[in-house]
Design a binder for these strands. Structure first.
Lengths: 177, 177
DNA sequence: TACCGCATGTAAACGGTTACATGATTAC
DNA sequence: GTAATCATGTAACCGTTTACATGCGGTA
């Protein structure tokens, strides 16, 4: 039930879109800077080496004139399976917004079925979280914690409303097919 | 600008409320399970040793009959200063909801001035984040990322509404004084 | 008998950042 | 001449989890 966002899984997710070099992946990750601070090369390159060693990706060395050679990585079937397994595996309860959004991005590039699965899972978790938070507010807590709980409540309610909205739209689209 | 929630600072925060043993702190942290999964003993006890060595806390060994002896830790002036410094230091941009809520809890137990400072800081950050997210939505992105961005937008708007609400209430209270 | 709560602790492993090294090309 | 971009990589360090060890008392 350990479930944070792991670099290797992120990489596999990007390679699903297209073969890339480590440097390319870094650029892609920078594009997600609104969500996560992109991992450093110090973790990126070793992760690539591990994925290669484990047969999740293959490399092709591409020389360039006037520039350093690039190592283009391509995801293998085994790699795809591993990624799929990770996405399908239920997210740990209490898992952060960030981790969920990463899963959403990855799932959204697979299929609509995966996408709705993620959304439904989140719905279940957020409403459970909402309940726990409401319960915690009943107890006697300090002023800071009281505010924090209230904040959590507000965010959870907003999440729930959004999820219901989107899930409603998606199910309507399915009917129309 | 590295700014996640660090065990040592959490511990100092709890010890501000009252002297406690490591075991007690663990129990307290469990009470915050709606926010964070409480750190393991494997990080808690070593953290306590470090704090002791650095003069941020003092210990008193309390023997018990029929039960193992307890080590009660008390925060020192130096420890209080360190904590204060950490809370006053501006939170890194893009810092997570979790990290902010922890700061809120800690600040709420210090003074109302600290509390409003945290809230105002968060307001600035969330509105900046909102802007970045809206910008990112303009660009051409995959279906999953599109949804994720929209989700982020919804949550950020909810946060902003809540912050404005609370900040409004707090400033009114101050006028009435 | 076997596990749970109390209470403390250590060692190995993991996953990451920071800082470094290399070396060529282009832009100010 | 100084910095930035391209492109890869390693080593030291940090903070944390996991798994272990100890030992006693109460409970199912």
């Amino acid at each position: 039930m350990a479930n944070t966002i792991n670099i290797r899984q992120l990489i596999l997710g990007f390679l699903t879109q297209q073969p890339m070099s480590g440097y390319d992946i870094k650029r892609f990750l920078k594009g997600l800077s609104w969500l996560i601070d992109s991992p450093s090369f110090g973790s990126l390159y070793p992760a690539l080496h591990t994925l290669l060693k484990d047969g999740h990706v293959t490399v092709e060395i591409v020389p360039q004139q006037d520039k350093p050679r690039r190592k283009i990585y391509t995801i293998t079937d085994k790699g795809s399976e591993t990624l799929q397994d990770w996405i399908d595996q239920p997210a740990a309860s209490g898992v952060s917004l960030k981790a969920f959004l990463m899963r959403l991005i990855l799932a959204g590039n697979l299929s609509e079925a995966h996408l709705t699965a993620q959304l439904k899972q989140r719905r279940t978790q957020v409403s459970a979280h909402l309940q726990r938070t409401a319960d915690a507010l009943q107890k006697d807590v300090g002023p800071g914690e009281r505010l924090a709980l209230d904040y959590g409540l507000a965010v959870a309610n907003a999440e729930l409303a959004w999820l219901d909205n989107v899930l409603g739209r998606l199910s309507k689209d399915t009917e129309d097919t």
